[in-house]
Design a protein around this nucleic acid. Structure first.
Lengths: 191, 191
DNA sequence: CGCGGGTTTGATGATGCTCAAGCCCGGTGG
DNA sequence: CCACCGGGCTTGAGCATCATCAAACCCGCG
């Protein structure tokens, strides 16, 4: 059940089968339906999730009730609100299933125990965080240096598989413009 | 010399004086003049820096030779290009001293040795990365949900001390608009 | 004193938003 | 099995925000 997670860990640190078996005690597999919420803005984020199957996103709602998607996660990605999870403060974001979703959930109150049991995971999570940080940096870089239209084409070529899986209004809210504008970009290309 | 760094570490993990002394072997204190570069775009980032005194920034240049400041670091903050540092790939960013700068530099080729010598630092760096990630998340959130003018006032109230230390063209390039526009925002307030 | 980097000011214009209407299509209930 | 409903996508007109360009200004420094 947690094989994909152990495989993922092995991409970054040595991790034997015994450790892998111990790992299982700390995780619960959960499933969510399309559009279900794993977390709502204002709640404390009590778990971090490793996506086994499906797709989810974090987003928040600003003025005018406009949604802003913060990031997406598919199979093999971690998803959480790091700040809320670590510091047990109210979250700034919603976490929502985009598709039918299966995740391995690590509860906050089990996390420290896990790191004591398997201290080599400190390094794993450090590396995961570094990569998430690098991704966030690239996101800011693209937001600054590319126009809306360029961001769309950049995304479309780097993640073609996402174009199928994500509704356009979510993609627009991720790229930082309105669904109407996305629609107009697409119209240009086709004609 | 490295006292501020040890103090910083103690804010997150237990860290005795012996460890603190050992730490010193792995760091070099370096100084840079205003506008000097710690790293240039395209080079591999061979160190991560803990700021002891002064201020520095990361930035990149996009089309039209316009600069985009990615983030600032002052006393007590870490600065590096995480992606380049970890994976030894060419950096996407410049790192530059904004003011006269003194840093404690940890070289990439000493880093793994440091973590073996003082493995409790794995946790420290994990936490540091988590906080950097949370900051990056908030940055994206503000970019999305606030207008240019709102971002300026938000920044000015949260970091008033920065307004003194940073030239306005750098602040504009951090907030995501032009120096001319920043000037116009300020003109509004004063009149 | 003059130079030059940084800031200000104004005119013009592009990018992308708002609002409103219509369309497409899958799902649900009669 | 069809009608209807509603969510999501499209299209267009008008408009706000902010960029671009150009000129003038300010002021610290050589």
């Amino acid at each position: 059940m947690l094989q994909p997670l152990c495989d993922h860990i092995r991409r970054f640190i040595p991790f034997d089968d015994v450790s892998c078996a111990r790992l299982a005690q700390f995780f619960e597999v959960e499933t969510y339906k399309r559009k279900a919420f794993l977390l709502r803005e204002g709640e404390v984020c009590t778990a971090q999730y490793f996506v086994l199957e499906g797709c989810c996103r974090t987003f928040f709602t600003a003025a005018n009730d406009t949604e802003h998607t913060h990031l997406f996660a598919i199979e093999g990605w971690w998803m959480t609100d790091a700040q809320s999870f670590e510091q047990r403060t109210p979250s700034q974001f919603h976490i929502q299933a985009v598709e039918q979703l299966r995740v391995a959930a690590l509860r906050r109150d089990l996390r420290d125990g896990l790191l004591e049991t398997l201290p080599q995971l400190e390094r794993y999570f450090r590396i995961i965080n570094e990569r998430a940080l690098a991704a966030a940096n690239m996101r800011v870089k693209y937001l600054f240096s590319l126009s809306g239209e360029e961001r769309y084409h950049n995304f479309a070529t780097r993640f073609p598989e996402f174009l199928q899986r994500i509704p356009q209004y979510m993609l627009a809210s991720y790229l930082g413009f309105t669904p109407e504008f996305l629609s107009k970009i697409r119209a240009k290309r086709i004609s």
